[in-house]
Design a protein around this nucleic acid. Structure first.
Lengths: 166, 166
DNA sequence: GCTTTATAGTTGGTAGTAACAACTAAGGAC
DNA sequence: GTCCTTAGTTGTTACTACCAACTATAAAGC
């Protein structure tokens, strides 16, 4: 964390930032497509799957918590939850302490489906990285993790309104 | 490229695949959000921005070519193009050789907007990686690039119907 | 050259995503 | 107990995304 967080003067960083931008937008585009394709054939959308995954990973959540987890507006999540609930993949339960809130719980069917999808995507992942040598794999996972973490921190601190910048 | 592409027996690969799955879905979720936030304040959506970016990078494309580039159905792209055209960020031109086809061309306003957004996102990218040492940055860019490439190849070969699975 | 057959793009229809704003109901402060 | 806040839902609007059906042009077959 140097003083030059606002605008780097190091040309190497600039170059790398541009390269990373390219590589990441490419990756994300392909991944989005692949996930769309992979997930939709289980009669569930990508967002719905993310929601299930969050519930599977984190246990029961309130609607607001889930919205925060997914970086979505609570109204959007409320509707997404409706759809998933209709498919009996999760349940709305009254919250123990707070009667305004709901507890969202994944059902066993939901968990099963989520497992299938996860296994499916992981299998693809496995094939992708099988060609990488172990050290490269480790580096990749580590770096992507750090990048995600860093991005997450930026988002939560800079959160709120659009274009508030920094 | 070993013989064991279908199901790896190497437990290290399995573990790494799971870890990568976690890290990448995290990253993609945050990035999608961030991009949504970043781009939408320029009165343009993420998909629209991808379309502009493709045209800026690759020059004039037909609608089908753009659809392939974005991994979207041509009907979707046709409508996305409508929206962007309405905003005068691109032009539909008759194709020279083929009167059925259209040439999609980014306008100078489109290019300017795309530049602003790219610079904006790159600035964020720069801050994210500024904390990484140069070697790690290089490794990250290289690995993400390879991953995107590998994913792209898989997608295009395994393409076609959903759940066709190799 | 004229009839298939294929391709490029648009439009219709449907479902879901996503935001903001307005609302209801419940909790907490005083 | 009124006032303010918070949890979720619903109304509204616009866009994303698919498949299927359509029009117009191009290319192949004969």
């Amino acid at each position: 964390m140097s003083q030059a967080t606002s605008t780097t003067t190091d040309p190497a960083v600039d170059r790398d930032a541009a390269a990373l931008y390219e590589a990441l937008s490419d990756l994300i585009r392909v991944y989005q497509f692949r996930d769309r394709d992979r997930i939709c054939c289980h009669d569930i959308s990508v967002t719905q799957c993310y929601a299930l995954e969050s519930l599977a990973r984190r246990g029961p959540l309130t609607l607001n918590e889930l919205a925060a987890e997914l970086y979505l507006d609570k109204s959007t999540v409320s509707r997404v939850v409706n759809t998933i609930e209709r498919k009996k993949l999760l349940r709305r339960r009254p919250h123990k302490q707070d009667r305004r809130a709901v507890q969202l719980e994944i059902t066993s069917a939901g968990r099963r489906l989520q497992e299938v999808i996860r296994a499916d995507i992981e299998e693809r992942e496995r094939r992708l990285i099988a060609d990488f040598d172990p050290a490269a794999r480790k580096a990749l996972i580590d770096l992507v993790g750090r990048l995600a973490q860093a991005a997450k921190e930026r988002v939560s601190t800079a959160s709120g309104t659009c274009c508030s910048l920094d």
